[in-house]
């Protein structure tokens, strides 16, 4: 099929958190759709594994910790000018509000909010996001719902919405760079396994979504849509992709 407004051919896309879960599948799906991807993640071995699964040539892997200034600078150096950035790196944190430590708040905000924001800031400062490009932040339905023991995780993900809205406006007029968020529900990933170990009963939550548990592909395809020319008029939006989880819930 020649007509394909969802093609990413000719585009370079930087994907964080690409060593597992949604980030890994996002890298694979973007490459499948023709993009050259620059992947980053903390685990060099698993990152290399992801790289081995990428279609096409020219892909680059950079093992780095984005919460570390040196790691962040290295990713910016290696990335070069990109057309898209998919911020998939994230950590979960399960703790009742009254048990949350300052250290834990710092850790979850550093990875889920500061790192993607600073990476974007650095790329923009060095004009490394091409005009007409697309930035996608992976948030979470938890940020809309606010469930038990997720207060700080939800807050770190929820902080991305207004940041993305403001950034989207700053970048729209001249650079035509689009900024959007995706809020996935419960997706079959290692991060979810981590949550499971924290609280066994969370498994019941999967049944809450009318369409069941999601697969990383479901989120990765939404990222492809938001990267592609097909979505060139969509900015400052949030796509909730959750199998219907939040449909019967009053959310903001």
């Amino acid at each position: 099929m020649s007509f394909n407004p969802f093609s990413l051919a000719g585009m370079s896309v930087l994907v964080t958190g690409a060593s597992s879960g949604i980030g890994r599948q996002t890298a694979i799906s973007c490459a499948d759709m023709g993009a050259r991807v620059i992947i980053t993640g903390r685990d060099a071995v698993r990152l290399e594994e992801t790289r081995g699964r990428l279609e096409g040539d020219g892909h680059v892997a950079v093992a780095a910790d984005l919460t570390d200034a040196e790691g962040l600078a290295r990713v910016v150096d290696v990335a070069g000018v990109v057309d898209g950035v998919a911020h998939c790196a994230g950590i979960s944190m399960i703790a009742p509000f009254r048990m949350v430590s300052e250290k834990a708040i710092d850790a979850v905000f550093k990875t889920n909010f500061h790192a993607p924001v600073l990476l974007t800031q650095r790329l923009l400062a060095k004009r490394q996001i091409a005009n007409g490009g697309s930035i996608v932040f992976i948030s979470s339905t938890t940020a809309h719902i606010g469930t038990i023991a997720t207060s700080m995780y939800a807050a770190s993900k929820g902080a991305l919405f207004p940041a993305a809205r403001a950034l989207g406006l700053e970048l729209a007029t001249k650079q035509k760079i689009r900024v959007n968020c995706i809020s996935p529900g419960y997706v079959n990933t290692p991060l979810l396994d981590g949550i499971n170990n924290g609280a066994a009963s969370i498994e019941q939550n999967y049944d809450l979504a009318p369409l069941g548990l999601g697969e990383p592909e479901d989120v990765a395809n939404a990222v492809v849509f938001l990267m592609a020319g097909a979505s060139k008029w969509i900015t400052r939006s949030t796509l909730i992709i959750d199998g219907g989880l939040t449909v019967p819930i009053s959310i903001s």
């Binding site: 969802f6 989207g168 406006l169 729209a172 689009r178 009318p210 369409l211 999601g214 697969e215 479901d218 395809n221 939404a222 492809v224 849509f225 979505s231 008029w233 969509i234 900015t235 400052r236 939006s237 796509l239 909730i240 992709i241 959750d242 199998g243 219907g244 939040t246 449909v247």
Partner: peptide, 15 residues
């Protein structure tokens, strides 16, 4: 591609 998306409204407004 959107097989896990339901009940949603996508806003598209050029910012």
């Amino acid at each position: 591609a959107s097989r896990w998306m339901t009940g949603q409204t996508i806003v598209m407004d050029g910012g």
